[in-house]
């Protein structure tokens, strides 16, 4: 290799006027085994540059570590479609329940539409009045029966009063 050229390139290098190609040339040159003595001080610099590039690398184990940390991402994207499907299914299920329920309720209603309690029992108002009175009388009778029984409880009350008064006298 032309040593004068290297000398010139080196001068340009210190002045920051070299191109990338020329800098590469310098690096290649100074990484050769037989460097002239006058450049022994400078060559470690370019050896260092080369060495740094060679030795500081990340292995394939690193790739795997990174990729496993990225892996959830594409899975999540697939999940998006699945999520949409689940949401739609949920809405559809609710709709289905409502429709089914409506159908059965309607069915029930149609079946029992003509049952007696769904229609008026009496045509004649007088007859209805009599019937109502009868029903109320029955309630009243039963109610009075209950009241009679309740009166007996009053006996306990009287007894308690007496005892109380007796206590006061003592």
């Amino acid at each position: 290799m032309d040593l004068d050229r290297i000398e010139r390139l080196l001068e340009k290098y210190w002045e920051c006027e070299t191109s990338l190609e020329e800098e590469k040339e310098l690096r290649v040159f100074f990484n050769r085994p037989d460097i002239p003595v006058k450049w022994k001080k400078i060559s470690p610099l370019f050896e260092y540059y080369e060495e740094e590039l060679q030795s500081n690398t990340l292995g394939s184990a690193f790739d795997e570590r990174v990729l496993t940390r990225l892996a959830p991402m594409p899975a999540e994207q697939k999940g998006k479609v699945r999520k949409l499907f689940y949401d739609l299914a949920r809405v559809a299920a609710v709709g289905l329940i409502v429709i089914t329920a409506t159908y059965f309720i309607r069915e029930q209603y149609m079946e029992h539409k003509d049952d007696p309690y769904m229609v008026d029992t009496f045509e004649d108002p007088r007859e209805a009045f009599e019937e109502t009175k009868k029903a109320l009388r029955m309630i009243s009778k039963n109610f009075n029966k209950g009241r009679k029984e309740a009166k007996k409880i009053g006996v306990f009350n009287n007894a308690r009063e007496k005892i109380k008064n007796g206590d006061n006298k003592l």
């Binding site: 740094e52 590039l53 500081n56 690398t57 990340l58 790739d63 990174v66 990729l67 990225l70």
Partner: peptide
């Protein structure tokens, strides 16, 4: 694309 475009730069990033 990530594996071919970005991952190969890792050593430069690391250094």
């Amino acid at each position: 694309a990530f594996k071919t475009q970005v991952l190969p730069v890792k050593d430069k990033l690391y250094r």
